[in-house]
Structure formats: C-alpha cells, structure tokens
Design a protein around this nucleic acid. Structure first.
Lengths: 175, 175
DNA sequence: CGACACATGTAACACGTTACATGATTTG
DNA sequence: CAAATCATGTAACGTGTTACATGTGTCG
C-alpha cells in the first residue's frame, strides 16, 4: 500500500508490520476495509531491499510472537521529506468513463444515456453510504474529514454526470 | 492504457495500433498528451496473448509501412459488453493526502496547514489551466465535456482542502 | 538536410493484488 | 472446541511505465 505512506508512518516512530497495518486501518476508518492483510509485509520487504528501511528483531509482549521492527534509514528519511514537500495530486480519472461513452456511441453497442443513468444510480448509492458513514464518525475527526472529501467528490461527479447526460442526449437527437 | 478501452475502440471497427493511438489522443484532447507512444502496442500484444483480439497483416497506404490490423474475438466482444454494463467507478483517492497530513502531524516533520496551503495553490493552478483548456474546446464537444468534469472535480477538491485547513488548524490550537 | 507523419515493437521495472501458508495464545 | 488476536511472510500474476530501438516517405 503506497510505499510513501508506510515510510511516513515509520517517520513518527519505528514499528512493525502488524502495528502499521492497524494504524493504517484506524486512520482510514471504513475505507481501510479494502486493505489486504499481507500487503504491508510485501511493501516492507521491498522497502528494505531498496535500502529505505532497516529491520531489527525485537521482543514482543510476553508470550507473544516476536516482532520485526522497522526503522527509516537516512535515505528513507529523505524520501519522506521529499514526499511531504511534493504537491502531487492524482489527476482525475474521468477519462475511462468518458471513453466508455464514446465507445458505446461509436460502436452502437449501448445507449450512452442509459449508461450515464446506471452510473448515476450507483453514485447516488455510494453517496448515501458515505454520508451515513460520515454521520457515524465524530465531527472534526480525521476520518470524518476524509469521508467529507469523499462526499464532495461524489457530488461533483454527479453534477458531471448530469452534464454528460445533457450533452449525449443532444448528440442522439442530432444523429 | 486500460485494456478495456482499447478493446472498446476495436468494437467499433478493426484497426491497427497507430490509428488506435491517434483516436485515443483525439478523444482525450489535452489529457492525451501524457500517453506513452509504445503503450498501445504493449496492450495489444497482451490482449492477443489473452485471446481477446486477433491480428491480421494488411496493406497500408501505398508506399507506407504495412499495418497489423486487430479485431475482436468472441471473447473480446463479450468482455466489451461486460465492461459497458459495469457501473464501476474509481473510488476517491483522497486517502493518500489524508495520510500525508496525519503523518506530517504525527511525526512533527511539517506543518499540516502549510501542506494544505501548498496543495491549494497547486490545485488553483491546475484549475486555471483546465478552464483555459476548456474554453479552447468548442462547447458541447466530448473533449469539452471531459474538461468540465475535471474542473468540477478540482473545485470539489478545493472545497475539501478548505475543510482540511479548518480542521487541522483547530487541532493545532488544541495541541 | 532535418523534421515530421507513418508504423511497429521489446525489455526491464515497479507496484498493487490475490491467495496461500504458518503458528501461538486468549476468550467465549 | 472454535474463534479472534497477535504476528509474519511468499509466490504468482496483471498491468502500467519507461526507455530504447527501427525504418520509410514526404515536405519545407
């Protein structure tokens, strides 16, 4: 799960895989459920191979399995600092849907307007879910904030779908 | 670039790599500039290996290199139909930024509010660019529609950043 | 002559995902 | 006894990305 994220969590303090996984889940709230359990370990292994972290065996709780505690190397710290300074932002991934409409219309396989409609119903469902989840979180909490972002996004996407419907409905009339 | 997209473009009519690439670029407008030239061929090769398309050598324009024309197999057609019926939607990728703020605050490496600020400046720049690009497109064109989606997204993200700033500024006061 | 349109690829790499595999201890 | 918690991994796969590599014909 995103090497930078794991690195940044280690910047706070050295830790082991199991705990990182738990911290991630906690920070993501309901969105963390999609995570795969083994993923963190894969990422840690690769980070170690890349020389960004180092591991050390450490005793766990009494009568508990030992832990493998990872800490940042100098390279790792630099990478984290770079990541924090970065202003990258995932570019909107609307292109796929856009191309779907174009392809459907061009190939005559499906009605673009119907596709938009189906998509809107799906997004409305997700919006409802996100709003419910947001209400379950205490206001002002980080997880609540994240869910608010999801809601704002979905609302923007729904408005876009309306624009899509208007445009494609118009195109059909003219063809 | 997304196997389904390539498949769907072939659903309209059999075609060769170079043309697909051109059609993609045209459909994406300014967003198509990020594409890598060799990518389409990689995708086509893998699709053929997977039995979703078949290729045939065909004569190109006079005195031009030959083309390798790809067409959908029955499996490929089914896959396209399935894709069109799907209501998948990329889940919002806000988690990374969210985790960045949490990590910055926890590790004390950077001021979350400063990060939010830098990010806002970046998004405002992108918003301006997208609006300029949108104005260059004829109204009602597919590319213009896509750019409108990008603008709506950016506006929603900017509103989210404002919420982030309020929340994190509040947290700082209390710490 | 140099740039551009036409046309095709490959090799290597990074990364996320999935599924599988193990084993102790506490709690109901 | 079964389930959950603590704790770790690996092998294989799909796919996007990058960089490199090649060749002709036309147009200015």
């Amino acid at each position: 799960m995103q090497q930078e994220v794991v690195l940044a969590m280690l910047a706070k303090e050295p830790s082991h895989g199991y705990e990182l996984r738990a911290r991630l889940r906690q920070a993501l709230g309901p969105l963390g459920d999609a995570m795969n359990d083994g993923q963190v370990y894969v990422t840690l292994t690769r980070l170690e191979r890349a020389g960004l972290v180092e591991s050390e065996q450490a005793a766990g709780l009494p009568d508990r399995p030992d832990r493998k505690v990872y800490a940042l190397t100098a390279d790792g710290q630099q990478r984290v600092a770079g990541w924090l300074a970065e202003v990258s932002w995932p570019r909107p991934d609307l292109a796929e849907f856009h191309l779907k409409l174009i392809a459907a219309a061009a190939a005559g396989l499906a009605d673009p307007v119907a596709i938009v409609d189906a998509q809107r119903r799906e997004l409305l469902r997700r919006l409802r879910d996100a709003q419910l989840a947001a209400m379950a979180e205490p206001g002002g909490s980080p997880v609540g904030l994240l869910l608010e972002g999801v809601v704002l996004r979905l609302q923007a996407d729904l408005r876009w779908l309306e624009a899509c419907e208007r445009t494609w409905a118009g195109r059909k009339d003219r063809s």
